[in-house]
């Protein structure tokens, strides 16, 4: 494993320009955020009238509708729409498997570029993007912040994540549990990973239960995962754990492998479906913009 992507490669102007036509469309966002372009579930001091409600102690006296009081003899206050930002929590996988180069380019390139792309789309529309990379644990690199200037900061953070380091295992379940404990404002959680947690797909399903965010699953795949080209007597070594398995590759074993891999994908799709989330498969050897464009088919991704 070696260094795979540099800052310049990540912060490619052409790449970022291609993202400018895309946007995230959310009906309403949770309240408590900063001023943004999304309608909040909160009602407050906006300019567009929304509703009335009876006056209660502590309400702003400027919101009392005195005309209505004259007609009905009861005190009501006017409520207005509030526009806030959408918090986007980006969780790229930076475990050892992301850096494996034995059978093609490392997945970390596609992972980091996908993360940057989605963060940029949000930041372009005054949303807040936070970076929470994970491997054997969740790191909080940057809590959600908005503003165009954050794009540069985000790219620098991601470039540092691409530097080679010790082989680290994937602990997605642990990381999700940690994320849930942060009590973050509800927003969009983008999970960028191959989802090869040693606990299996069912452990991931359980770990996602306490997560209240809307979710976007970005699955990084490579052709050799689905159609391995191994043959003969081989010793397979897990790039993260170092565990070895001696196998004689036969058509029967290959068929079983394909079946196991297909079941894993079906389970992951089922998780996404049950959470009403989108599952985007990114072929790490394919064109990233083209693959991301499937997510923004009408120019915007409806959350």
């Amino acid at each position: 494993m070696a260094a795979t992507v540099t800052f310049d490669e990540l912060f490619d102007p052409d790449f970022l320009t291609a993202l400018s036509r895309w946007s995230l469309n959310a009906k309403r966002v949770a309240g408590g955020g900063r001023h943004g372009e999304r309608l909040s579930r909160d009602l407050g001091s906006g300019i567009e009238f929304k509703d009335y409600r009876p006056y209660s102690a502590g309400d702003d006296l400027r919101a009392i509708d005195w005309n209505l009081y004259r007609r009905l003899g009861k005190v009501f206050v006017r409520l207005f729409e509030v526009e806030e930002d959408l918090p986007i929590y980006l969780m790229p996988d930076i475990s050892g498997s992301m850096f494996l180069t034995d059978s093609g380019p490392p997945s970390v390139i596609a992972a980091l570029r996908s993360t940057l792309a989605l963060a940029t789309v949000g930041l372009n529309h005054h949303d807040a993007a936070g970076l929470f990379p994970f491997s054997d644990r969740l790191q909080v690199i940057s809590k959600p912040k908005s503003g165009h200037t954050q794009i540069m900061t985000f790219a620098k953070h991601l470039a540092r994540l691409a530097e080679p380091g010790p082989r680290i295992e994937t602990r997605l379940v642990t990381s999700l549990e940690r994320l849930a404990s942060l009590n973050l404002r509800r927003g969009l959680l983008v999970l960028v990973s191959d989802f090869f947690d040693p606990g299996g797909i069912e452990a991931i399903r359980e770990a996602l239960r306490p997560i209240r965010h809307r979710m976007l699953f970005v699955q990084l795949v490579r052709r050799s995962d689905a159609e391995p080209t191994l043959q003969g007597d081989v010793r397979l070594t897990d790039c993260e754990s170092g565990d070895a398995a001696d196998l004689t590759i036969t058509p029967k074993i290959l068929a079983r492998y394909r079946a196991a891999y297909a079941k894993f994908n079906e389970d992951l799709a089922d998780i996404a479906r049950r959470r009403q989330a989108h599952l985007l498969k990114i072929d790490i050897e394919g064109d990233l913009i083209e693959q991301l464009s499937r997510l923004f088919e009408d120019g915007g991704y409806r959350i």
Partner: peptide
């Protein structure tokens, strides 16, 4: 056996 490093042995 031929040594092959893979993403996962799952």
């Amino acid at each position: 056996h031929r040594q092959v490093t893979v993403v996962t042995t799952l």
